[in-house]
Design a protein around this nucleic acid. Structure first.
Length: 285
DNA sequence: TGAATTGTTATCGT
DNA sequence: AACGATAACAATTC
């Protein structure tokens, strides 16, 4: 489940306890999760953790010698502590035994998570899109990237090579706040719509981080953002903006929640005019 | 029991 | 080439 705000929360929580620790031993109980190979990841042994960061949905551990561990939790991964007085979590897949007697654990029920060891962080992320909260992603840059793609906006936002860090939850929330239907062609967005979308993306991500992420089920506990979601998982409930029932559809194999009134589908006749909305969809000749 | 699940990737067809 | 659809990965929960 973890998307950008959840991984950011995990990084912030681990940082004070992890920076300065030395990795004594790697315990690989599900070697398939270790990339490029279990032997390669073993090179983290003996190294000290210098920093804890995030890139997209990856948790980054900066190690001595210029090497990195990049951990992707995919669907069901969690980071936990184990130790003399802490019981080991269920589904422990990779364990890092540290020099203070504690043990950092990647637990992952579905085994989709990945642990990557690399000396070349830039090379590892060469195909990863820009950080949505990064300074380099100006409205102009974002609008230009959208213009270049002939694709529905929702699957594009989920594409990590286009933008790093959005998952199903925050994508639906951002599109709702920007009043855009998920099937709107990316290249059809005006400059104003692109700017509004970037603002909406940053708002939902910052709000998600401020609330320590979204806790929808047993996988990711402790977050509070689920109380502030406006469309995701709210099928049938009234839209927070207009009162119309939120609709669930399946789009690109993913559950997709929208307000049919606030996010009218482009090109579909039969819906009422965009009353209070500025005419944004038509591009000047 | 059966359906659904937050993410990513390979593959196929258009 | 780019895109959409599909399955696969694997397990758990409701």
């Amino acid at each position: 489940m973890p998307e950008l705000p959840e991984v950011e929360t995990i990084a912030c929580r681990l940082r004070p306890d992890l920076v300065g620790r030395r990795i004594l031993q790697l315990e690989a109980r599900w070697p398939k999760s270790l990339w490029p190979s279990p032997e390669a990841v073993r090179a983290c042994e003996g190294r000290q953790v210098h920093r804890v960061d995030r890139r997209g949905k990856h948790l980054l551990l900066g190690l001595s010698g210029g090497s990195w561990l990049a951990i992707h939790l995919r669907m069901s991964g969690r980071m936990e502590w184990a130790g003399p007085h802490l019981p080991e979590p269920r589904h422990a897949r990779t364990l890092w035994h540290l020099d203070d007697g504690r043990c950092l654990v990647m637990a992952d029920a579905r085994k989709f998570g990945r642990v990557i060891f690399t000396q070349d962080l830039a090379g590892t992320f060469v195909d990863l899109g820009p950080e949505p909260l990064g300074d380099g992603l100006t409205p102009a840059v974002f609008a230009a990237r959208l213009q270049a793609r002939d694709r529905a906006i929702k699957p594009l936002l989920l594409d990590q090579t286009f933008l790093a860090g959005l998952g199903n939850i925050y994508t639906d929330e951002a599109l709702f706040r920007a009043r855009l239907h998920p099937l709107t062609p990316a290249s059809a967005l005006t400059r104003a719509e692109a700017t509004a979308l970037l603002t909406a993306i940053r708002e939902v991500l910052r709000e998600g981080i401020a609330h320590c992420g979204t806790s929808l089920d047993w996988i990711y506990p402790d977050g509070r953002m689920q109380e502030f979601l406006r469309v995701y998982g709210r099928a049938g409930a009234p839209c927070t903006a207009c009162g119309a029932p939120i609709v669930r559809a399946v789009l690109g194999q993913r559950g997709t929640w929208t307000c049919p009134r606030c996010q009218p589908e482009p090109g579909v006749s039969g819906y009422s005019p965009r009353h209070a909305l500025p005419a944004r969809r038509t591009r000047p000749p």
